[in-house]
């Protein structure tokens, strides 16, 4: 190391801790907000240490709620996040397999069609996509939350890239061993892709969990809201003090699942993040 100066090291650590403190501050304050009474919030300043209302507030959020119980919204979010992650992975694995291991007329066209989806995020085609979803009777359904979001160019390209690094001879050996394409896919390709699938799963789960605009459009029934978008209805408006503690408890509950995924599967998460951007 170049900088082995003691003072400098201590200083660096201090700065880092300060940075982390600033980064964590909003979450800490949110947590504090979820443990106090409404009265404590309405009378600023907000205490900097948690209160004793934790159980009460979280219970009210989970089972009471202002529109739908948060438990119901958590359930919807879980279905949506899992559906999107699994759906994207399955669909992308299959298309990448077809693109890499077969030559068929129209292959280039398929490749570019998939590429095109990169240029069409939900945000730029809000109204027509909504109209189509309405026509297909997808309003207020889990399928409606999931299906329009599970085409994935990024995941397809990632798997394609990975398949291209698997030596041709492996597929040929499997063919000599009498394995047909689907057998090869199941016995060789899937086991070899395991880490990639897991890493991608972490990223896509978070992506699905954090969706906001699409659930906002497609779920008008509070019982179908996901937690990330449902919380919007729980924000007290400026002239009404509302129930901030319950809203803050909901925010913490919305953060918890994806945050746990990131922390527990940190290595896969980092791998997934870096690979999907390649």
């Amino acid at each position: 190391m170049v900088r082995n100066n003691r003072v400098a090291t201590v200083f660096t650590h201090l700065l880092l801790i300060l940075g982390i403190a600033v980064m964590c501050l909003p979450i800490w304050l949110t947590f504090v907000g979820s443990t106090v009474t409404r009265a404590e919030i309405i009378q600023p300043p907000l205490p900097l240490w948690p209160g004793d209302q934790l159980l009460l507030n979280y219970r009210e959020a989970l089972f009471g709620g202002r529109n739908a119980p948060v438990l119901q919204m958590l359930w919807n979010s879980a279905i949506m996040a899992l559906g999107i992650a699994v759906g994207k992975i399955v669909i992308s694995l299959l298309s990448a397999f077809a693109i890499v291991y077969f030559r068929f007329p129209g292959r280039q066209l398929v490749f570019w069609t998939i590429f095109l989806t990169l240029m069409l995020p939900v945000e730029v085609r809000i109204v027509p996509t909504y109209e189509i979803a309405v026509n297909l009777k997808l309003l207020n359904t889990h399928a409606g939350l999931i299906l329009p979001l599970i085409a994935s160019a990024t995941a397809t390209f990632l798997f394609r890239q990975f398949f291209l690094t698997i030596p041709d001879e492996l597929a040929e050996a499997a063919r000599m061993d009498g394995a047909g394409p689907m057998r090869f896919f199941k016995d060789i390709l899937l086991p070899l892709s395991r880490t990639n699938i897991a890493a991608l799963f972490v990223i896509l789960f978070i992506y699905g969990w954090n969706q906001y605009l699409w659930p906002l459009l497609i779920t008008t029934d509070p019982d179908m809201n996901t937690i990330v978008m449902g919380i919007k209805r729980m924000i007290p408006s400026a002239d009404d003090y509302g129930n901030w503690p319950v809203t803050m408890a909901t925010a913490i509950l919305a953060i918890l699942p994806p945050a746990l995924v990131v922390i527990v599967m940190q290595r896969l998460f980092v791998k997934g993040l870096i690979e999907t951007e390649k």
Binding site: E169, A173, A174, M176, L192
Partner: peptide, 27 residues
Amino acid sequence: IAMVFQTYALYPHMSVFENMAYGLKIA
């Protein structure tokens, strides 16, 4: 027929036994 490849093309996630048995299992 059976073939031995230049890079051996052994299935990396299978044991030696499974590698040798794979074709027989399919058959």
